[in-house]
């Protein structure tokens, strides 16, 4: 869905067609969830956060001034919500990548729907290590690498979302990548 169709959906929602908001949810749910998951490292909490972010966005939809892209505005809400959430809870230590459900624990699976032979070089174990090391980075580096390297956002959008200067975005990306590269090399992946 293009950004133009985002605006069309927003117009419909503002006109009273709340059901139309499902298009926004379906489009952005994974991205919101991934960011939340990188912050709290817990599947259920990340789901709750993602849901709250969508509700907040719908409540505040009238304040969206259409100066920036809708995705940028939505990500700003998400980043601020996660910051406040962590302040409020003041916990979220790194825990095992498991959760309990029905009395037994299981690992969160990474869907493996990669098709190209080149991608097949990266195995599930490799991804698990990359994820562990990425999520173990300091928050400043982690959030910016999630936004840049996972979500593929432009530097300018990241600067708007995080409310920092463009040069600061570059510096954080450099340092975050450097640190991550060093740690992955120590784990034998590079």
């Amino acid at each position: 869905m293009s950004d133009k169709s985002d605006l069309e959906v927003i117009d419909r929602v503002l006109a009273g067609d709340i059901e139309a908001f499902s298009a926004i949810i379906e489009k952005y749910q994974d991205r919101i969830f991934r960011y939340a998951y990188s912050r709290v490292y817990n599947y259920d909490e990340a789901l709750d956060i993602a849901q709250e972010v969508f509700l907040m966005a719908m409540e505040a939809l009238r304040s969206f001034r259409r100066e920036a892209k809708f995705s940028t505005w939505l990500f700003s809400i998400m980043v601020n919500y996660c910051k406040n959430y962590r302040k409020k809870r003041d916990r979220f230590p790194l825990v095992a990548l498991t959760r309990s459900e029905g009395g037994e624990e299981y690992e969160i699976p990474i869907p493996d729907d990669r098709q190209t032979p080149e991608d097949d070089v990266i195995t599930g174990d490799t991804l698990r290590i990359v994820r562990e090391e990425l999520y173990a980075l300091p928050d400043d580096y982690k959030e910016i690498l999630v936004l840049r390297d996972i979500e593929g956002l432009a530097y300018g959008d990241i600067a708007r979302i995080l409310g920092i200067h463009l040069s600061n975005v570059k510096v954080r990306i450099h340092r975050g990548r450097e640190l991550l590269k060093k740690r992955l090399a120590e784990r034998g992946l590079l």
């Binding site: 499902s22 749910q29 994974d30 998951y37 849901q51 990359v130 690498l145 590269k181």
Partner: peptide, 28 residues
């Protein structure tokens, strides 16, 4: 390394439809 990190976008919500439905119900 960047390619490996970008592969983490495969992480997502397992029951997407259910999540969307639940969120929409709450939104309504």
């Amino acid at each position: 390394m960047v390619k490996m990190v970008s592969c983490l976008r495969l992480i997502g919500i397992r029951s997407r439809d259910e999540f969307a439905r639940a969120t929409l119900s709450r939104a309504i």
